[in-house]
């Protein structure tokens, strides 16, 4: 299959995903009548669908580790963040059980989701069994929400203070980068299933290896680098937002007219 054919035909219209998205939208519209931030929600939904329906999903499903990593990052860091931003600003999260409201829980959720699912056995299992894959997707969304809840809970007082948030994000960034570094430089054993396809369902193997020049080593390297560099930029972006939030409360810089 050539690249063009692939881009047009490799969309996976998985009914479960579509139904889940539909239900999500309905719940959102039903639950929040006032103060809707529907834009954020639709954006979250769009990103979610794009990750799970577009050719990226087909690639992640047994072909490319790097595509899997992209999916992983989006589901853990982008979709939950957008979802939290779509909540009405007055919504309190005080109903959270105390354990979930602790920063340490959020941190372990965010970092743990990265390390846990890249344990070689689990990484391979998620490609082999649909059920593990579904579990992985759901867990990433839930854990990502726990992680971001500390930073972008709708109410300011339920978030970490800006300096605390910087520490939280930075340490998470380091913890994930370390894994990225390991993946980048270790031999191709982390998710060995991607080195040889179980079945070349789409007939894409040839195109990927020779057309796109994606060797197994390069594939894992890109996966590791995605986790190392661009993922850090997501955290870094959040850190800047925190600094802006901190300084933002100062009176706006305006000229003081000279009185002479």
């Amino acid at each position: 299959m050539s690249t063009e054919q692939f881009l047009f035909s490799a969309w996976t219209w998985n009914p479960v995903v579509l139904i889940a998205a539909g239900i999500g939208l309905a719940v959102y519209l039903f639950a929040f009548r006032a103060e809707r931030r529907i834009g954020w929600f639709l954006l979250a939904l769009a990103v979610f669908l794009l990750t799970l329906v577009s050719p990226i999903n087909s690639l992640a499903d047994g072909y490319l580790f790097s595509a899997h990593m992209l999916q992983h990052i989006v589901l853990l860091l982008i979709v939950p963040g957008l979802l939290l931003l779509s909540l009405p600003r007055s919504l309190s999260l005080s109903w959270r059980p105390r354990i979930l409201a602790r920063p340490l829980t959020g941190w372990i959720a965010g970092v743990g989701a990265m390390w846990f699912w890249h344990w070689p056995t689990l990484c391979n299992a998620a490609v082999t069994w649909r059920s593990v894959y579904a579990l992985q997707t759901i867990s990433l969304l839930v854990l990502g929400t726990l992680f971001w809840g500390q930073i972008i809970a709708p109410r300011d007082e339920e978030r970490l203070s800006p300096p605390g948030a910087v520490l939280y994000l930075f340490s998470a960034c380091v913890a994930c980068s370390s894994l990225g570094i390991i993946l980048t430089f270790s031999p191709v054993t982390v998710c060995s299933i991607y080195t040889m396809p179980v079945s070349d369902r789409l007939g894409m193997w040839e195109t990927i290896r020779t057309g796109w020049r994606f060797t197994a080593e390069k594939d894992q390297q890109i996966g590791g680098l995605l986790m190392w560099v661009p993922m850090c930029f997501i955290y870094l972006g959040a850190i800047f937002a925190q600094i802006a939030r901190w300084f933002g409360e100062a009176p706006a810089a305006r000229p003081v007219t000279q009185q002479t």
């Binding site: 706006a252 810089a253 305006r254 000229p255 003081v256 007219t257 000279q258 002479t260």
Partner: peptide, 11 residues
């Protein structure tokens, strides 16, 4: 000369 206009920045 007196101190100039104390402009502190512009977003």
């Amino acid at each position: 000369a007196a101190d100039p206009n104390q402009l502190a920045g512009s977003k």
